[in-house]
Amino acid sequence: MEYHPTPMADLSIDDVNRVAALAKLRLTPEEAQALLHDLQGILGHIDTLQDVDVEGIEPMASPLEHTNRLRPDTPQATLDKQAILDLAPETQGDFVSVPRVLEGHAE
């Protein structure tokens, strides 16, 4: 396996800014440049891993060997309402208060 120190050519500053926007991160141009460099390094390493022959190997969903860790359908104690509301920046009555959002959302 050969390590590719050369960064992946096709990652641009626009990609960095787009991913940052999706993650709700506000980057200065300097931070974006630094991240572009780091991400190119990471993707270059991934490129190297892509060279590994994985023919016939099932993709791994989890590094753990366990499966089916299920719990019984029994509810337990809940958090105190006030404890939840105390964590919110703003509240209104028994609710957490937020800037107005689109009605009928739900993905």
Binding site: T78, K81, F95, V96
Partner: peptide
């Protein structure tokens, strides 16, 4: 009542 059946995961 609102926010009374929550747990650490759901918030």
């Amino acid at each position: 009542a609102p926010n009374t059946i929550c747990d650490p995961v759901s918030v």
